[in-house]
């Protein structure tokens, strides 16, 4: 009989919280990367409608991600962050 596995991290919540902060800091760079992708396609003119759908899709995805992240960040006490 094996003992149930112990969690390696005791301060699991604090750890998770700091990673969420990391994600919030990275998010705009990720968005910039996706928004800049059409530049790479450069020469090949694709339909403007397709480009528009792509850009609006990324835009909406970013908004959703920001919504989820900010909902969790809001609960963090403003006094203990860094």
């Amino acid at each position: 009989m094996k003992a149930p596995r112990e969690p390696l991290f005791l301060a699991r919540r604090g750890y998770r919280r700091r990673r969420i902060m990391d994600a919030a800091r990275i998010l705009p760079y990720f968005g910039l990367f996706l928004f800049m992708l059409p530049v790479l396609r450069g020469g090949h003119a694709s339909s403007i409608a397709v480009s528009a759908i792509y850009l609006f899709g990324v835009w909406f995805g970013l908004i959703l991600a920001a919504f989820v992240l900010s909902g969790r960040l809001k609960r963090i006490d403003p006094e203990d962050d860094g």
């Binding site: 902060m21 919030a24 800091r25 705009p28 760079y29 968005g31 928004f35 970013l62 908004i63 900010s70």
Partner: peptide, 11 residues
């Protein structure tokens, strides 16, 4: 898009 990125990166 510029302001969007700034606001998304508010933290």
């Amino acid at each position: 898009l510029g302001p969007t990125l700034v606001m998304v990166g508010w933290w």
